[in-house]
């Protein structure tokens, strides 16, 4: 520990000099990464001042003259912004409502599987989709739902004798497909966290429950669930903290002009106004607004989860 150095000044060196003589290699080691961090993480952060400045091509990333809240006023009056805001919130909330319970149920049921090999195989395969590219996920979904040859429409046409439906293009299916593909990709992965929490449960609890005559159903509801409730709470709070950060890339991949009434979220709006139409300052203002709400949500939810797990309500 560095504290030992404080009293020992053998060669008349100050403690600080000794500290750097001893650890200079560690400091030197991180020079490049720190510079990297400043350039690629903090300069863009400061670059958000562009929201208050007018952008002129070739005049750098911080814009030219101050214009105050002009761009903010403009998007507050823009119905396209409010549509994107509503779409972001409803897609996000629906996503939490439908996908949040799945990994919990999956983990509890998986934990009840008695055959070890089978359990391992199911678990391993269940979190593989997490590592598949979003592009591939959407491409596979497009093919499965294809109106001309996809599995679903084959069933509709051949068995139900209905007209084929172009699922990927119809606005009423967009939210369902976004949520379902997310569940497909992340249920197994998120379940790992709950499984870890379940394996930490003291086995005495189960033995005691068994002696009291509790069957497996009762054990699930009276031992397993209450024991992982703190984990569930933390996960839920963190999920709410990420309310505004939807899978932008996935939405962009699923976006078509015909489903834009539901699929245009804040991030895609920023992308379109900023990069496609090159209204840099305006798009930065929208991005900054949602970034600040996101920051408030994340730090608020983190505080809350620390409060809950720290002193614990339970």
């Amino acid at each position: 520990m560095g504290k030992r150095d404080v009293g020992r000044d053998i060669n008349g060196r100050s403690p600080l000099q000794r500290h750097f003589r001893r650890y200079w290699q560690l400091y030197l080691m991180m020079v490049v990464p720190v510079v990297y961090f400043i350039v690629f993480k903090y300069i863009p952060m400061i670059g958000n001042v562009l929201a208050f400045r007018k952008y002129r091509p070739g005049k750098g990333i911080f814009g030219t003259e101050w214009v105050g809240f002009r761009y903010f006023k403009r998007f507050f009056e823009d119905p396209a912004f409010w549509r994107a805001f509503r779409n972001t919130l409803s897609l996000s909330l629906l996503n939490i409502v439908f996908t949040f319970p799945l990994p919990i149920v999956f983990a509890i049921l998986l934990n009840e599987v008695n055959r070890k090999r089978f359990k391992k195989v199911v678990q391993t395969i269940s979190y593989m989709p997490r590592f598949i590219s979003t592009v591939v996920v959407i491409a596979m979904m497009t093919e499965i739902l294809s109106p001309s040859s996809g599995l679903f429409n084959q069933f509709r046409v051949n068995v139900l004798h209905l007209q084929p439906v172009y699922y990927m293009n119809e606005p009423q299916y967009f939210r369902f497909l976004y949520i379902a593909s997310g569940a497909w990709q992340f249920t197994g992965w998120t379940a790992i966290i709950y499984l870890a929490s379940i394996t930490n449960i003291n086995s005495d609890l189960y033995e005691a429950a068994e002696i009291d005559g509790a069957g497996r159903f009762q054990q699930i509801f009276h031992v397993t669930l209450p024991s992982i409730l703190p984990t569930i709470m933390v996960m839920l709070i963190l999920e709410v903290g990420r309310l505004l950060s939807l899978g932008f890339e996935k939405v962009l991949l699923m976006y078509t002009p015909s489903n834009s009434s539901v699929s245009d979220i804040i991030d895609t709006l920023v992308y379109r106004t900023g990069l496609t139409n090159q209204n840099y300052s305006y798009a930065t203002a929208i991005g900054l607004f949602s970034g600040i709400i996101g920051l408030v949500l994340v730090s608020g939810s983190n505080k809350l989860s620390k409060l809950l797990t720290g002193d614990g309500i339970y």
């Binding site: 400061i46 990333i61 920023v270 900023g274």
Partner: peptide
């Protein structure tokens, strides 16, 4: 902090 608050698409692009 940089995990919670990032530069956003446009500032990154311009950088």
């Amino acid at each position: 902090f940089s995990m919670y608050f990032a530069g956003g698409l446009i500032p990154n692009y311009l950088l």
